[in-house]
Amino acid sequence: MRAITLNRALPDKIELKSVSSKAVGAKEVLVKIKAAALNHRDEWARKGLYPNLRDGVILGSDGAGIVKEAGDQVSKDWIGKEVIINPSINWGNDQKAQSADFEILGIPRDGTLAENVLVPADRLHEKPAHLNWEEAAALPLAGLTAFRALFYRAGLIKGQKVLVTGFGGGVAQFATQFAIAAEGEVYVSSSSPAKIEKARSLGAKAGFDYRDANWVNEAKSIAGGFDVIIDGAAGDSFSDLLKVCNTGGTVVFYGATGGNPSQLDARRIFWNQLNIKGSTMGSDQDFLEMLEFVSKHRIKPLVDQVFSFEEAVTAFDRMRDGKQLGKIVLKP
C-alpha cells in the first residue's frame, strides 16, 4: 500500500512510498482510509522536534474510513462500517490525566497517512452522519483537544465570556465553534483579518489582532475581560492573557508553540484568583462526549484545503507556513 512516511535523509523529510501491509492482530481492525488530516505534530516530526521519531514511520493521527478486516477477538459487525478513529491510545482509567503508557496514533506507531491503517478496535467510532469524509477526518485530534480544554478543564458554562487565541488552527476553530454552540460569548484573536472575519461569520462577537500593541486595551474596551481563555501558544503572550482574564477566570493551555514565558506575573495570578491549567488531547470519555456534542449541534469542521497524497509536501508546507484556516486534509 502507499503511505506518507518520515525520511529525514530527504530534503523534504517525508516521502510517499509503497510499504508492506501487516497482519491484523486479534484485537485490531484494518481501516481503509478515505481521508486523513494533518496536525502540527506531523510537521514537528518533519522538523525532528518530536520525541521517539524513527525514519519509515507512517505519519498522521486523524483519519476516517471503512473497516475492511477485523481481528479474531473483534466483532465482525464492524466490517463495512464508516468510522472515525480516536487517536488517543492508552489514556487509562483516570479522567484527570493520561497514563504513563499514553500515546497518540502516528508516532511512534504507524498512523493514518496511508491507504490502510491498523488500529485497536476500541479506537473505532461510527462516523457522525452529518459529516462527509473530509470533515470526519478533520475532527478527532483537534476536536478532542478543544473539547477537553473547554469543558473538562475550563468548565465552561452558558453566558461566560470566552477568548480563543490563534483562530485558524485546528484546535482553535473547534474551541470557537464549541463555545458558540454552548452559548458562550465568544471572541478570538488572530494575526489575519480574514480569519477574524471567518470567526465572526460563525458567531464570534469580535476578534483582535494580537500583533497590535493595543489589543489588550481594545479587548478590555469591547469585552470587558474574559472568564475563560483557551490558548495553544504560551510564550511571552502569556502576560497579555493574564491582563484580559477576569477575576476568578481560567486560562487553559493545550500547547506552547511560542515556547515558555520569559516572565511570570505571579502577583496578578494570586491577587486576581486566576486558574492556570494545562490540558492535552483527552480521555475516551471526552471523545464520546465530544462526538455527542458535535452530532447534537451538527458542528462541521472547517476544512482548509484537500490534497492528494502526491501533494503531501505542499500540504505540509502550507501547515508550516501557517496559511491554513481550519484543517488540511489529504486523500489517498
Rank of each mutant, 00 (worst) to 15 (best):
N7Y: 00
A9I: 04
A9R: 12
P11T: 09
K13H: 15
L16K: 13
S18D: 15
S20G: 14
S20E: 15
G25Q: 14
A26D: 15
L30P: 01
K32T: 11
I33N: 05
K34G: 12
N39W: 02
D42W: 08
D42P: 09
E43F: 14
A45W: 08
K47I: 04
L49S: 05
I58Q: 10
S61R: 03
G63E: 02
A64M: 00
G65F: 03
G65L: 01
V67H: 04
G71V: 05
Q73A: 11
V74E: 01
W78C: 07
W78T: 03
W78H: 01
I79Q: 07
G80W: 05
I84F: 00
S88K: 07
N90F: 12
N90C: 11
N90I: 05
N93D: 15
Q95F: 07
K96D: 15
K96S: 15
K96T: 15
A97Q: 14
A97D: 12
Q98H: 15
A100L: 07
G106A: 04
I107P: 02
I107M: 13
A114V: 02
R123M: 14
E126H: 00
K127M: 06
P128W: 02
N132C: 02
N132M: 00
E135L: 09
L141F: 09
A146I: 05
A146C: 12
L150W: 03
F151L: 10
Y152C: 02
R153I: 13
A154T: 06
L156H: 07
K158R: 13
K158C: 12
V164K: 10
V171R: 03
A172G: 00
A175K: 03
F178S: 02
A179I: 05
A181Y: 05
A182F: 04
V188T: 04
P193G: 09
P193W: 08
A194M: 04
A194S: 12
K195S: 03
R200Y: 01
K205F: 08
G207M: 00
A213V: 12
A213G: 07
N214A: 14
V216E: 09
N217A: 12
E218N: 12
A219W: 01
A219C: 01
A223Q: 11
G224W: 02
I229R: 11
I230N: 04
I230D: 01
D231Y: 11
D231E: 10
A233T: 12
A233M: 09
S239A: 13
D240I: 10
L241Q: 02
V244R: 00
T247P: 13
G249I: 01
T250F: 06
V252F: 03
F253V: 07
R267N: 13
R268L: 10
R268W: 04
W271M: 15
N272P: 12
N275A: 08
I276S: 06
K277P: 10
S279C: 14
S279F: 05
T280R: 08
S283D: 10
S283C: 08
Q285Y: 15
E289P: 07
E292P: 00
E292D: 15
K300Y: 09
P301M: 00
V306M: 03
S308A: 11
V313N: 11
V313E: 13
A315W: 09
D317Q: 13
R318T: 10
M319I: 08
G322M: 07
Q324I: 02
Q324D: 09
Q324W: 11
Q324P: 13
L325N: 15
V329N: 04
